[in-house]
Structure formats: structure tokens, C-alpha cells
């Protein structure tokens, strides 16, 4: 546990020194603000940039609800651009240590592989969730101001469930890092697998229940006021997170 704390603290301090907390948070704040602003002021934005020619905006179009705006922020902004940037930000979490020789220095000490991998998982999840939470909170505030109120408890529940998805993405990056050496390839593979899991949400309901992506549907349901709390999705996601770490552990021991 002491080693886990030492390793995790170092990762957090490194993120602070590299200003990751600042730029990643700023990025998610921008993403969080963009969707409600676009939804509300699309016609004004188009007018001001002079690009409204040929585009017809229905003046009677229905105003989206706050739930719809929050949902499009998550599925359109956080799960696409956000996920790409997030993955790029931690693509070197194992590869960097391996390439610099730090990993060897750490693992020749009485440090278990499990505590090394779990410290990576926990620290990068914390860094990601710090930025995402602030971005989501800003988005929530803007959405409330522009589109009316939305249940805070549901928003909080969404954030908690969404954090499981982020934990899965970090664990996937760790697993891929043990097989692939190039950080760029690690990022591309992680993004591709995550995107496939996001897209596959609607394909087969029963099969999808067995996928780690089911937690994302559960999280998004909280924004649509669908109160079902499918514990199976949480367990599935946790299972895949542990499975990823177990496989990474096995791979690192062997090569």
C-alpha cells in the first residue's frame, strides 16, 4: 500500500508539473460550454460568421430540453473529441516509463506489478475525472441557465457512472501499452476500441449487456431521467477493468 501511495503521488505531482490538470480541465470546460451555446445561439453564430447562405434554420424548431442538451454534450463532445484528447494525454502512461528505463528501476524494487499498474490506473482516472467533472459541472450550469433546470442528483449519478467508463478506458490503455510500444499506436488502438464499444451500443441489447460499453448507456439514461440502475452493467464494467489489469500484469511478467 505504501508503494502504491508513493507511485500514485508521483503520477499526480507529475500531472501538476506538466500542467495537465489545467489544460485538460480547460479543454473539457470548452467542450462542456460549446454544446449548450451552439444549441441556443446557432442562428446568431451562423449570422455572425456570415455562413448562413444556403442554410435554412426552422424558426419553429422545438427548443431542446436541458436533458437533451446534456446528453448531446456527453455523447457528442465528451465521448468523441474528449475521449480522443484524454487518450492522447495518457498514451505514454506505461510506454514512457518503459522507454526511459524508469519501469525497470521501479520493478527491481520490492514493488509488485499489481501495485504499479493499479497506481497508474487510479492516478490517471483521478486526473481525468477531475477535468471531466469540472467540464461537466460548467456544462450543467450553462445548460440550467439556458434551457431550464435539471435534477442535480441525476447529473451526479451520471457523473459517477460515467467515471466507471473512464476507468475502463484507462485500464484498456494500460492493457494495450503492455502489447504495443509506440505511444501513438497505443492511443489509436484505444480510441478505436472505445469508439467501437460506443457505436455498438445499439446493435444487440442482450449482447451489449455483456460489453463494458453498457455502463455508458446506463450513465446516459440518468440524463434522460430513466431511473433504472442496472447493477449488471456496473459489474460487467468492473469485471472488464479487472480483466484488463490482470492481462496486463500477466503480459508484463512474461516479456
Amino acid at each position: 500500500m505504501t508503494n502504491f501511495n508513493t507511485l500514485m503521488r508521483t503520477e499526480i505531482v507529475e500531472a501538476l508539473k506538466e500542467f495537465k490538470f489545467i489544460w485538460l480541465t480547460l479543454f473539457f470546460v470548452i467542450l462542456g460550454v460549446t454544446q449548450p451555446l451552439i444549441n441556443k445561439y446557432m442562428d446568431i453564430i451562423l449570422e455572425n460568421v456570415g455562413g448562413a447562405d444556403g442554410i435554412t434554420i426552422d424558426p419553429n424548431r422545438p427548443t431542446p430540453s436541458s436533458a437533451e442538451v446534456l446528453l448531446s454534450t456527453v455523447s457528442g463532445q465528451f465521448n468523441q473529441i474528449g475521449l480522443i484528447i484524454l487518450t492522447i494525454s495518457f498514451m505514454g502512461l506505461i510506454a514512457g516509463d518503459r522507454n526511459s528505463g524508469m519501469q525497470d528501476f521501479i520493478l527491481t524494487r520490492p514493488v509488485s506489478l499489481a501495485s504499479y499498474l493499479l497506481s497508474k490506473l487510479a492516478s490517471h482516472w483521478l486526473i481525468s475525472m477531475f477535468s471531466i467533472s469540472i467540464g461537466a459541472a460548467v456544462s450543467y450550469t450553462y445548460t440550467m441557465m439556458l434551457f431550464g433546470s435539471f435534477s442535480f442528483s441525476n447529473f451526479l449519478l451520471f457523473l459517477i457512472l460515467y467515471s466507471f467508463w473512464i476507468l475502463y478506458v484507462v485500464s484498456l490503455t494500460i492493457l494495450i501499452s503492455t502489447f504495443v510500444k509506440s505511444p501513438i499506436l497505443i492511443a489509436v488502438t484505444t480510441i478505436l476500441i472505445s469508439m467501437i464499444l460506443i457505436i455498438a451500443k445499439g446493435f444487440n441489447h442482450i449482447l451489449f449487456q455483456l460489453s463494458p460499453g453498457s455502463i455508458l448507456t446506463l450513465a446516459e439514461n440518468q440524463l434522460q431521467s430513466m431511473q433504472d440502475l442496472n447493477y449488471f452493467a456496473i459489474l460487467t464494467c468492473l469485471f472488464f477493468i479487472l480483466f484488463n489489469i490482470y492481462l496486463a500484469n500477466l503480459k508484463m511478467k512474461k516479456s
Binding site: T10, E14, N99, S100, G101, M102, D104, F105, T108
Partner: peptide, 9 residues
């Protein structure tokens, strides 16, 4: 242990 590629944070 001193590894072949020595680098630190």
C-alpha cells in the same frame, strides 16, 4: 540495479 537506458523523471 542500474538499467541499460538510464533516465529519470
Amino acid at each position: 540495479y542500474l538499467s541499460q537506458h538510464t533516465d529519470f523523471k
